[in-house]
Structure formats: C-alpha cells, structure tokens
Design a protein around this nucleic acid. Sequence first.
DNA 1: TCTGGGGTCCTAGGACCC
DNA 2: TCTGGGGTCCTAGGACCC
Length: 401
Amino acid sequence: MTSSAGAPEVTPILHVDMDAFFVSVAIRHQPELWDQPVVVGGHARGVVTCANYPARAYGIHAAMPGSMARRLCPQLVSVRLDFGEVAEVSKQVREIFRRATPLVEVVSVDEAFLDVRGATRLFGSPEQIAHRIRRQIAEELSITCSVGVAPTPSVAKVGSRKAKPDGVVVVRPEDVPGFLHPLDVGELYGVGPSTRKRLRRLGFETVGDIARTPVPTLHQILGPRLGGHLHRLATGTDRRELTGRLGPDLPDRSTGAQETFGHDLSDREDIVRELLRLSARVTRRMRRAGTVGRTIALTVRFSDFTTISRSRTLPDPTDVTQEVHAIAVRLYDDLNLRGRALRLVGVRVEHLVAREGTDRQLVLGERERGWSEADRAVDQVAERFGSQLVRRASLLHNGRG
DNA sequence: TCTGGGGTCCTAGGACCC
DNA sequence: TCTGGGGTCCTAGGACCC
C-alpha cells in the first residue's frame, strides 16, 4: 500500500442495496404498513419472495414456504407486486446514482456498485456521498437502502449487508482485515450452505482461517477456481475496476420458464399442454429480444422433489415455438415416466445468440417457415391486445379449440 | 415447515478429433 | 499395434445468487 501524503492510494467503492426492495416498493405509499410484517409471495405452494424487517423479526425470510411464514406470524400481510412499478423505481434509483458518479455498475434490480473517486471534490468524502444518496432515495422514492463503503467491491458488499437495514458501514483500507477476518465463512460471496458445510468440516470457520491458508492449499482442497476466488475475497484483494455497465447489456446466455403446478400432474396430455404453454412463453421472450438458441432443456420435478433435466442440442438455432415444444415433448417421452406424477416442469433454451446473422432461410423447410410466420402473427396480436387473448388452440380447455 | 422462478457458472465424464 | 495428450463439444447435475 503506497502513500504519498499519509493517505493511502485507494479507490472508494460504494455498494448500495435497497432494503427489502420488493416489499418496500409495494407499500411505499402506505405508511400505515411500514411497521407491520409484510411479504411479497408465499401463496399456496409458493415461497416468500421478499420479507420486510418487521416480518423478519418473526423469523420470516425470503425462500421460506408461505405456510410456515403464516404459522410464525398469523397477522402477516401479503401484498401483490407490480413489476412495472418495480422497474420504474429501479430506474429512478439508477438516476440518483448517476448524479453522484458516472461509474455505476448495476448488479440487479436492487443493488449497484459505485466508484466515487471522481466525486469527492464535488460531494465530499465517500461516506458523505453515501449519506447523500440515501437521503435522496428516501426523500424522492419513499424507500430506504443500505450502503457499504470500502476499498474493493466485495468488501463494500459485505459492508452494505452489515449496514442493514437503513444504515451505512465504512471500512477503511487499514481496517479491512479486522473487518473481514472474524466473519463466518458463509458470509463470503459464493459460499452457500453446501460449501460452508464442507469448509467447516475441514476446519475453516472464519474468513480469517481462509485468509491465513496458503493459496496452493486452497487450490488443492477447493479446486483452483473456488480456491482462488475465496482467497481473494477473504484477503480483500479482488481489486477489479468496475465495468461502468448500466445494467445487463450482454445478451442472456439462456432463458427459460418453469411452473410448479397447483397439484401434481401425471397425465401425458396435461403435461404436453403445459410444455406448450412454457415453450410459447420462452420463445416469445426470445423473439422479442431477437435471440435464437441451439440447446433445448427439459426439467422435471417429481412429487418427492427429486429433479432431473434432459437436453438436446440442435444443428441450427431456433426461436420457433413449435420446434422447441416438439423437442421438449420428445425429451419428456424419452424419460419413459409412465404417468409418474410431476410437481414441476420447465423448458429452457440455451446457447442464445442474436438472430441477425443466423439466417436459416436456406435450411428452413416450408413447414417450419409456416410455423415461424404463425409465431410472429401471434406475437403481433398479443402485443396489441394482450397475451390473454391469443392462445393456441390446444391451450384452450380440453385441448379442443 | 416443506420447499418459486429466473438466471450464471463449475465440474466431470464421454465422444470425437488431431 | 499400442499409447498418449490436448482440445472441443455435449450432457447431467449441482451450487449459488437475487
């Protein structure tokens, strides 16, 4: 660490993370609910998507089955999510970030990294910038957020988690080891329940235990990838530059849809119809994004929750509903389930590329061309009148339309 | 308590080619 | 005739994140 006039040479990074974002957006104009336990999701066989802090006080958290959440807190309020409003608020939050610095890297709808090295002259210390952003978000959007300030993105991210809810945590360069080392290994990004268990079996309990272990040893135990990654996180040495990317401008690598049924399905006809519904949803999304994909994957979950997948790669990419559906059905038939009850099915298209430049006209048969045109016609009507109105005949009741 | 939905990335084995 | 090693693609499963 070099220092010219006593101050170490560091890039101040902010990690800003909205508090219980989905719930906060849903009830931001209902202050009477702010101190009540509120969740988004958790109906029927579903799980809680997001829980606010009063709900968390009852032990409720995201991914918890709704039935359990209601048992823990009978007066729990469940609210609906307006995706349009979520997107709008998310956009407004980004605009507030941009007032502080152009170096914003959006991670997801509710969090971003900010490189504020060029903003300190105008707005003061990184900590002052953090408070300024929090104030603007609270005043203009009626939601709260938490901020971590640190010399690297990953330390800033841990900082924002420690700051929750509605707070700021500043980690100065000289304090990084003291801040990170006492933490549980499970607090590192990329260490979930499974890796945590494995690490603890091997005697690693704290982040410091990892930081003090020679890299080659970690490589040996965890593989070169995870080993190297965790050592960098544990020592706070992940000094990458932010991409300055305002949102995910890279095309998706895959896209898919899956559905857990209200009750398990075993009839082939029902399942084939669900596969058509899902194939249509996925390919419509692809046509809108202008992507085509070569690998079609089917996911199947049984009543006992065991889950398997089968996939097939085509010579040419497609976005045609009928083609994706036909392959999904073949993959299903090849499983030879003989009417075994299914809890969930999913269809996913992988290896996506831009449709431009993958002109298939020469290999397209008349039939396929016809399906492709039918898809586009359905898309156009759906754009104009809403997708509820346009359904394929076999999606109607009894498959007879 | 009984487990959503949309993604990304990694690993490992087998096939195939050079 | 047997052997090796590396690279790439495909498939299945799993861990993880939001």
